[in-house]
């Protein structure tokens, strides 16, 4: 697999660590109501669709960027690669 790194161009998947569902980007507010339930959901529940999936990849053997990758889990087609930190500001 090749991941088209937004800064470095196409890099082999073996340089990356896979972290799965990108929902980890949306950490609950610790002061919110039912925060314990929300953190349990955040910590333990992951989407695992057959189809388009947003997921996190970490370029550990590279520039240490956390990437938000949109990938079709059936065809392995990679539709979009973004720096995770860029998507957070939006």
């Amino acid at each position: 697999m090749l991941i088209d790194h937004p800064l470095l161009g196409p890099r082999d998947a073996s340089e990356f660590i896979y972290m799965g569902d990108a929902k980890l980007l949306n950490r609950p507010n610790w002061k919110s109501q039912n925060s314990k339930t929300k953190f349990l959901d955040y910590g333990y529940l992951r989407k695992n669709p057959a189809g388009v999936h947003k997921e996190l990849w970490y370029h550990e053997q590279g520039d240490r960027s956390w990437l938000l990758v949109t990938r079709n889990t059936v065809t392995h087609e990679i539709l979009k690669v973004e720096l995770a930190r860029d998507t957070k500001g939006k």
Binding site: I17, M19, L24, L25, R27, L56, Y58, E60, R64, S65, W66, L83, A84, R85, K88, G89
Partner: peptide, 18 residues
């Protein structure tokens, strides 16, 4: 050591990017 750096980078880039 590698795991902590990975997690710190996660916090830095994904949770507290500002």
């Amino acid at each position: 050591a590698p795991l902590v750096l990975r997690n710190l980078e996660f916090v830095r880039q994904c949770l507290l990017p500002n």
